[in-house]
Structure formats: structure tokens, C-alpha cells
Design a protein around this nucleic acid. Structure first.
Length: 921
RNA sequence: GCCCGGGUGGUGGAAUUGGUAGACACGUUGGACUUAAAAUCCAAUGGACUUUGGUCCGUGCGGGUUCAAGUCCCGCCCCGGGUACCA
């Protein structure tokens, strides 16, 4: 008996490649299904067992959909622009394109060994000019469009020009950087240059002097989602705030649609929640306060306009523009010192020191819009410059931070909440009844807020307003290995290139570092200008540019005339199933939604969400192993024996460890310094290692390589095992030991079709009832498992089926053919081989998923438990052709009752609830 | 702090709508085959009692609803993730 996985897998992988078994076409009569994986960044380290987890799951589902008669689009490619290749280029001078291609080659080899059903004719690479030329084209489209809030849609910039020519800026609510106001006459009187300048304020891609996260170690700016805990996500380098001229994309215009769109898609709750928080919608009002003795007004945003009568002071952010204007000489020294102090503190310091209250009085007073009272204006670093208007009205009775500030500086805490005790803090409850609040007395909640805004609008001191935390997306990176931004400068003003000049190719440079003047690497390129001699933009696009539309390019990857054809977009439509990691929640998964909505506005695609369903596959963690060296010696002590010794914990390569027992010889040969290592072992002479679950990484020596497992157990075993580890969404530590179980299953599966001499034993006889029962039970559960993406239980159900058919000594061709199809999604190679051996021609991928026939099961009975008064139990059997869910009632005959109820007569017998029958005595 | 998840044997995990908790697998123990090992096969495997027929207790803790709760409700504890002065 021999199941030769090596030969079988090699044979079928070659067959699939040669016959292009998984090629998908747009000219199909079949219903379409689009299964997408987040494409990988091809890193130098290659794949470890964690990477293919999601690919295996998506492959299983793609195969399932094909067997169910769908035309399946299941592509793969590479997100090949990125930092590591550039860092490597800086160190070695090697062009990133070369290393990237090498890495891709290695990735492909590793992927091919697992037996995926990708349509490789559709492969894309974001760093190839055939692809990034179109990414640049999208940038031009963004530059040439604006967002109209009146109908919540983006339009081309020409339509805005027409509006300005006819009615000026007043009649239109356009998304912009700075609010502007001009009439049609004023617009028409402007010089062309001035008109161009004005338009820059409205474009979806715009240049602005903005505060950015600057990471000097990496030499580039970072997006908010690339900064974690005040340091860079990659490398963990410090990040500071810096003002720079930067390209940004006006994602804020889409804030509301990005939020409401979440209700229309089947994505994990956690991702939706993270995106909701990130967008950070809050409803309230802006209120403007006049300043005593100044013309300027202070605008504030508040979610609690109903607490307006509780305002006892104002607080401006230290960076607020008005601070310098309004402070009086008496307080100048204090204020300057405070502003100076806070500007020096890094974002990180400010974050780690939230409890410490600080601030300074400006000496100026605002005027309360209703009472006319003077309100002192303070500055404080708990008010953030970049949120809302950078100023607040402080209501110490209704906001804990305001309360603390008032308490600290001895400011008044007027009570506007009925029956409140404010001695320990504020009452942050919208449902609390208001008092000492003029027209709001006795009101609470929505009513109070509504009336407050109404009165403000009547007095022209405030208006309803919705605020978002979401900020525009920075789009400039001072890097080499990214898409050049297709822009040149004429008279210091940015112009986009003509489409016919795309792609704007990455130029060669002598070094991949910034110039001495701090210019990005592209500034090193010779003749980095247009033909006319205008200088080209030296920034490149961020990593997320290429990945924000790749799913569309897969639909029509070789198109030379457009991003993709309309026909392809109409046929393939949304991604039906998208698989990838949850770490992209606020990055890629937000940007790809943003661009999708933009394409929809431009009329290029008939949908405005990229993916109907998203599954986040969990991370496979590594199990690290440790040895313990007694300090100052070369002696290692077994982990159980450590008592008072001072030891150093050292990661040891997991391949030297079997269970917890160290192979001491292998360890000695690992490195020179361990050659003469001595061991303090257990009584039986073994050395026991410590262990911990950590992220899988080279530096922790806990990486398990899929290639080695495939060599030992085969690709089908690896696939089954990765699925069998647990639910796809869950994080789980890798455990190689369990692979024996699925390996055993594959041998049993093979043995079901063969005798001991490996002769095929299958015959075309009439299947027995028992055999059909086992088969159709399995069809049902496997189908249910697949539909709810429960790929781990599918493995169990296949195992049960093989065991049961084995004990029935089943050798029926029909039954075993259908079983091969059931197993073909998880273990495609062995299933193909068996399918072919049964005399079927061609690939199993063209077979049809078996159809469940409940009739087969009718003769058997379902058994249901019956309980009396929740105590006694017996089993009642119903024929399977009766759908137990539809049973309304079961009337027991007197004899039945007598028999089951040990002679007692029941008072009430009928109590039927779904499938379980209860009898009350 | 706030917002999401989650807590089931020695281990990974099943239990789809409230309906026989622990499927399936790993591990462990015992047995068969073998000169031996590996492989394979068989049996046992939540706990405690036990007259061997069963009985009782068991899904983080404490209550509740129900004939019936891992599943629903209330109050806690712990773990994971997100977020952090967002007005």
C-alpha cells in the first residue's frame, strides 16, 4: 500500500499549469464569483507556515465555487513597492527592482508547491511600469476632480469651473482646504494663474503645507496608521511633528459615505468598529464667541450645545492662531513660556502625561452669546489644535476634563444640572435635567440640544455641525521605491502630466538616499524634468497607492488602453470573498473603499464597496524554545531545575527541539560558541527547554518552513493540517505534531480505493443503502461547512466519512467518485489522482459538486431526546423524511405513554418545541 | 478609561435556531502484531462515587429566566484586540 504524495502532487501541479485549468474568462454564461487574497509584499525571508493560511482557505472556497458551476476569478500578484527592498538597496547599492524580482521568484516557487488554483495569467506587480502607469493615471483623475457635498459625489474639475463662472463659490458646497468666498464676477476677473491657484483648494489631490509625522530615521513622512504609540510601525523609530509641503487626498470628503457604507457589507464587526472609531463621527454644533476688545471671534465645536449656560471659561490649543493676537501684555511672559514648553514636548510625552494638568491665562475675555457675561480665555495642551476648531467652550459641570482644569486653576464651576453633586467631578450624562439655563431649564437630551441649536441659529451665533476625526490622507513619501507622482512645477505651481506621457518611469539614481539638502532620492536623478525643462515632483506615492485598486486590475490585467474595461468591471463586479489580515483595518481597507467610491462617482464601476464579504484570517504564531545559560559560564541548565541560579534565556532553533527535549548535539554544532557547552540535565539525561508563544520570526528561531513539511508529508497534508488547526479567523500557535492525524487520514483515504498491493479495488456495482447513507450525510455536512466557511470541521467530517466507508468495506465506484469530489477542495492532488484512476477524464475541477439526496436517508431514523419535567429521559425516533422543525405536536397514544412513563399516566403530554418533545407529569 | 471580541477535558477544538456537552484530532495509558523498533490495528481516556446497574457534579465566578442554558438576561473576574485628552 503506497500513497506516493510526491509523484501525485508533482504530476497534478504540472497538469494544472499546462492545461491552464484555472483560467477564468469574462465571456462566460456562468454566474461569476470573485475570491481575492490580500496580495503579499515579497519579502526576502520567503514564506513561513503562517502565510499560506489565508491562501489555502480562499483556494478551498474557489474550488468549491467552481464545482458549483461558477466562473471563478481567483488571482494572485505582488505588492512589490515597499520599504525593505529600499533599505536593502541603501545598504548594498543593489537596485530594488532586482531584489524584488528575486524575492518574487522564490515566493512563486513556494506558492506553487502548495497547489493553489490561481489564474497566473492575471498576475500583477505594483512596481512594474505596466501597472504603476495606471496608478499614476488615477492620481491625475483625482487631481482633476472635486467633491460636491450637495449631492455627495465627486465630479471632474471642469464642472466646478463652470459653476464658478456662472454663480461663484456661494451656491455650491464643495470640499476644500480653506473656505473661500467669491462671486462669479470676481472669479471671471481673476487671472488664469489666480484661477488655477483657487482650484488647487478644491482638487481631490492637493498640495498643502501640513503637519506630518516625520520619521528622520526612515527619512520619510508616515501616515497616521503607520505610526503606533508615537513610533514608526516599521522599525519602531521616533516620529516627530513637522510642517512640510505635501500631497494629500481628500478622503475626508467621503467620511460620511465610508461610515454608512459599513452597514451594507458583510465584514467582521471588529473591522467595522475600528473603521467607525477611526472616522470618528460626532454630532453637535459650532458656536462662535466674540472677544472683548477684538474683532476676531473664537469658533468652538461642541457635542453638548445644551450646556451653553454652564460655560465658565474658554480654552485654546497652545498652537491656536488667535493666541498671539489676544493675549495681553500682563500675561505675555506666562503664555509665551507655556507655548514654548508645549511645542518642545513631543507627541509622545504629551500622551504619556495625560493626568498632569497645565495651562495659562491669556488675559483676554470672550463674551457669552446669551448672557453677555465675560468669560476668561485660557490656553491648555489638553485642547488639540488639529481636532474641531482647536478651541473649546469649557463646561466644568458637564465635562470631566473641564472640571479637572477648573478645579486645578480655581475657576468657577457653575452648576447647570439639577440635583447634581459636583464636588468629585462632572456629570457627563446627556439625560440629566438642566437647570440655571434660561430657556433650557427642565429639558434634557435631544430636546435640549435641538432647542439650544435652534436658538443659536436664531441669534446667528452657532449652527448644527458634524465633525469627523478622520483626516486627509498624506500622499507624499520621500522615498525611491514607489510610484513617481506624475506632476511638474511651472512657476512653483503643480501641473499634472498628460496621460500620453505615462508611465512616468522611475529614473536611475546613484544612491537611494536623500540628497544633502534633504531632498528625496529622486532629486538625484539626472534630467528629472519634463521635455520643456520643468522640474518634476521628487516625492513618490505611499505603499497603499498600488493596493487601493489592484482588485480592479485583476479583472482586465493586460489592458493597454484603460485601467480596465467596462465590460470586465460589469461582469466581475465586487469581490465576493476577500481574505486577509486584520492589521489593515485603518490602512488598506479604508483606502480601497475610498478609491472604490471615487471610481463609482466617475462612472467607471457600478458598485461603491470593493468587497461584499471579508474574512480576517488569524495569525499563526510561533512556539519559541529557550535554553538557559548560567551567567558567566558556558553551562546550560534544564528549565525545570532552575532555582536560584542567575541565567540568561536564549532562543534556540525549534528544529533542535523535540517536544520540550533539546537535541544537545545539534545545539553544540549550531554555533561555535556552543561547541563546548555543558548541560545540567534531568535524571534521565534529557535537557528540557522553556517555551513561549510569540510572533513567528527569523530572529526568534521559531519559523516553521512549509517546504520541509511538504517534503515530509505532502502539500495535501499541509493544507488539511493548516485548516484543521482551528477556525480560520483565530490566532493560533503552530503545532507540527498534529499533522500526523491528517497524514493518517490521507493514507486511509488512499487505502479505501486500493488493496495492499496498491491495485485499484473499486467496482461499478450497486451501492448499498448503508454506503449511500454515509455519503449523503457527508455531502450535507460538507456543504453546510463550506457555506459558512468552517473549513476545520469539513476536515473532521471527511475523516468520519472515510472511517465509516472503510468499516463498511465500500468499493462502490459512484460513492467513491463523489467522495473524491467532496475532498477535492481541501486535498486537491490526491482527489484528482483518485478521480482519474476511477476512469474519469480531465480535471476534477470540471466535475459537479454532489447533490444531496435526503431520500437516501429516509429509512433511517433521527433520534430525539425526550424529557419529563426536565428530569427523566428517553429517546423518541422520528423518520427522517419528516422535517422535525415543522412538527407542531406529537400526540402520544395511551399505550405509548404507559410504556414510556413506567405506568404513570401523564396529565399533559403534548408539549412540542421544534424537535424535542417534553412530557409533563 | 472607553469600544469590540473571547473564556468548554492533559492539548487544538466540535456543539449551525436554547434541546443527549466534549464530535474530530493530538497526547497519554493498556493490548495485538514484531527478535526489536518504526508503522499499523484494537481498547480506555472530564471529575467523583459505585453493589458495575448506574448515581452525582461539570462549559471563568455569583445570581436569574425556562420543562430544558456552553448558548438568553443581570452583576463580577480574567484574557486578547482597537483606541486614547476627539470637546
Amino acid at each position: 500500500m503506497a500513497y506516493k504524495f510526491f509523484d501525485i502532487e508533482k504530476k497534478w501541479q504540472a497538469y494544472w499549469a499546462e492545461n491552464k485549468t484555472f483560467k477564468s474568462t469574462t465571456n462566460s454564461e456562468k454566474p461569476k464569483y470573485y475570491v481575492l487574497d490580500m496580495f503579499p509584499y515579497p519579502s526576502g525571508a520567503g514564506l513561513h507556515v503562517g502565510h499560506p493560511l489565508g491562501y489555502i482557505a480562499s483556494d478551498i472556497f474557489s474550488r468549491y465555487k467552481r464545482l458549483n458551476g461558477h466562473e471563478v476569478l481567483h488571482p494572485m500578484g505582488y505588492d512589490s513597492f515597499g520599504l525593505p527592498a529600499e533599505q536593502y538597496a541603501i545598504q548594498t547599492g543593489q537596485h530594488p527592482d532586482i531584489t524584488t524580482k528575486e524575492n518574487i521568484k522564490r515566493y512563486r516557487e513556494q506558492l506553487d508547491r502548495i497547489g493553489f488554483s490561481f489564474d497566473w495569467d492575471r498576475e500583477i506587480r505594483t512596481s512594474e511600469k505596466e501597472y504603476y502607469g495606471w496608478t499614476q493615471d488615477i492620481f491625475i483623475k483625482l487631481f482633476n476632480s472635486w467633491y460636491n457635498f450637495d449631492n455627495c459625489k465627486a465630479f471632474t474639475i471642469n464642472s466646478l469651473i463652470s459653476i464658478f463662472e456662472i454663480t461663484g463659490s456661494q451656491s455650491v458646497d464643495a470640499a476644500c482646504t480653506e473656505p473661500m468666498s467669491f462671486t462669479a464676477a470676481e472669479w471671471n476677473a481673476m487671472s488664469e494663474d489666480n484661477q488655477y491657484k483657487v482650484l488647487l483648494n478644491y482638487r481631490m489631490a492637493y498640495l498643502s503645507e501640513s503637519v506630518v509625522n516625520w520619521c528622520s530615521e526612515l527619512g520619510t513622512v508616515l501616515a497616521n496608521d503607520e505610526v503606533k504609540n508615537g513610533v514608526s510601525e516599521r522599525g519602531g523609530y521616533p516620529v516627530e511633528q513637522k510642517k512640510m509641503q505635501q500631497w494629500s487626498l481628500r478622503i475626508t470628503a467621503y467620511a460620511e459615505r465610508l461610515l454608512s457604507g459599513l452597514d451594507t457589507i458583510d465584514w467582521p464587526d471588529s473591522i467595522k468598529e475600528i473603521q467607525r472609531n477611526w472616522i470618528g463621527k460626532s454630532q453637535g454644533a459650532t458656536v462662535s464667541f466674540s472677544i472683548n476688545g477684538h474683532d476676531d471671534k473664537i469658533e468652538v465645536f461642541t457635542t453638548r450645545p445644551d450646556t451653553i449656560f454652564g460655560v465658565s471659561f474658554m480654552v485654546l490649543a497652545p498652537e491656536h492662531d488667535l493666541v498671539k493676537k489676544i493675549m495681553n501684555d500682563q500675561h505675555r511672559a506666562d503664555v509665551d513660556a507655556y507655548v514654548e514648553k508645549t511645542s518642545k514636548r513631543s507627541e509622545r510625552d504629551r500622551m504619556s502625561d495625560v493626568k498632569h494638568i497645565s495651562g495659562a491665562f491669556t488675559g483676554a475675555y470672550a463674551i457669552h452669546p446669551f448672557t453677555g457675561e465675560d468669560i476668561p480665555i485660557w490656553i491648555g495642551d489638553y485642547v488639540l489644535a488639529h481636532y474641531g476648531t482647536g478651541a473649546i467652550m469649557a463646561v466644568p459641570s458637564g465635562d470631566q476634563r473641564d472640571w479637572s482644569f477648573a478645579n486645578h486653576f480655581g475657576l468657577p464651576i457653575p452648576n447647570i444640572i439639577e440635583g447634581a453633586d459636583l464636588s468629585n467631578g462632572a456629570i457627563e450624562d446627556k439625560q440629566a435635567v438642566l437647570t440655571h439655563s434660561d430657556f433650557l431649564n427642565g429639558l434634557k437630551g435631544k430636546k435640549a440640544i435641538g432647542l439650544a441649536i435652534h436658538e443659536m441659529e436664531k441669534k446667528n451665533v452657532g449652527t448644527r455641525k458634524i465633525n469627523y476625526k478622520l483626516r486627509d490622507a498624506g500622499f507624499s513619501r520621500q522615498r525611491y521605491w514607489g510610484e513617481p507622482i506624475p506632476v511638474y512645477f511651472k512657476n512653483d505651481m503643480p501641473y499634472v502630466l498628460d496621460r500620453k506621457d505615462l508611465p512616468l518611469e522611475l529614473p536611475p539614481v546613484d544612491k537611494y538616499l536623500p540628497t544633502k539638502d534633504g531632498e528625496p532620492p529622486l532629486a538625484r536623478a539626472k534630467n528629472w524634468t519634463t521635455k520643456e525643462g520643468y522640474p518634476l515632483e521628487t516625492n513618490t506615492m505611499p505603499g497603499w497607492a498600488g493596493s487601493s485598486w489592484y482588485y480592479l486590475r485583476y479583472m482586465d490585467p493586460q489592458n493597454n488602453h484603460a485601467l480596465f474595461s467596462k465590460k470586465a468591471a460589469n461582469y466581475w463586479g465586487q469581490v465576493d470573498l476577500y481574505l486577509g489580515g486584520a492589521e489593515h483595518a485603518t490602512g488598506h481597507l479604508l483606502y480601497v473603499r475610498f478609491w472604490t467610491k471615487f471610481f463609482n462617482d466617475m462612472g467607471q464601476i457600478p458598485f461603491d464597496e470593493p468587497a461584499k464579504k471579508l474574512i480576517n484570517q488569524g495569525m499563526i504564531q510561533g512556539v519559541s524554545k529557550f535554553v538557559y545559560r548560567i551567567d558567566g559560564t558556558n553551562t546550560f541548565i534544564s528549565s525545570n531545575l532552575i532555582k536560584n541560579e542567575k541565567v540568561t534565556e536564549i532562543h534556540v532553533d525549534v528544529s533542535f527541539v523535540n517536544g520540550d527535549i533539546l537535541d544537545t548535539e545539534a545545539f553544540k554544532n549550531w554555533r561555535k560558541e556552543y561547541k563546548d557547552a555543558e548541560f545540567i540535565t534531568e535524571q534521565d539525561g534529557t535537557y528540557i527547554c522553556g517555551s513561549a508563544v510569540e510572533k513567528m520570526s527569523k530572529s526568534k528561531y521559531n519559523v516553521v518552513n512549509p517546504d520541509e513539511l511538504i517534503e515530509r508529508y505532502g502539500a495535501d497534508a499541509l493544507r488539511l493540517h493548516e485548516m484543521f488547526l482551528g477556525p480560520i479567523e483565530m490566532h493560533k500557535p503552530w503545532n507540527t505534531k498534529g499533522i500526523d492525524g491528517v497524514s493518517k487520514f490521507l493514507r486511509k483515504f488512499w487505502a479505501l480505493y486500493h488493496d495492499e498491493e496498491d491495485n485499484l479495488t473499486v467496482i461499478d456495482n450497486e451501492p448499498t443503502k448503508e454506503e449511500l447513507k454515509v455519503l449523503h450525510k457527508t455531502i450535507k455536512v460538507v456543504q453546510d461547512d463550506m457555506e459558512r466557511f468552517s473549513f476545520n470541521t469539513t476536515v473532521s467530517h471527511l475523516m468520519i466519512c472515510v472511517n465509516e466507508l472503510g468499516s463498511l468495506k465500500c468499493n462502490n465506484k459512484t460513492v467513491l467518485s463523489e467522495l473524491a469530489i467532496l475532498a477535492a477542495c481541501h486535498a486537491p492532488h490526491i482527489s484528482e489522482e483518485l478521480w482519474q484512476k476511477l476512469g474519469n477524464l480531465g480535471s476534477i475541477s470540471y466535475a459537479i459538486f454532489p447533490i444531496f439526496n435526503p431520500e437516501v436517508l429516509v429509512e433511517s431514523n433521527h433520534t430525539y431526546p425526550v424529557s419529563f419535567n426536565g428530569k427523566m429521559r428517553f429517546k423518541l425516533t422520528l423518520p427522517l423524511d419528516i422535517d422535525a422543525k415543522k412538527v407542531e405536536a406529537i400526540i402520544l397514544t395511551h399505550e405509548d405513554a404507559q410504556k414510556w412513563l413506567e405506568g404513570k399516566t401523564p396529565k399533559k403530554i403534548i408539549y412540542v418545541n421544534k424537535k424535542i418533545i417534553n412530557v409533563v407529569l
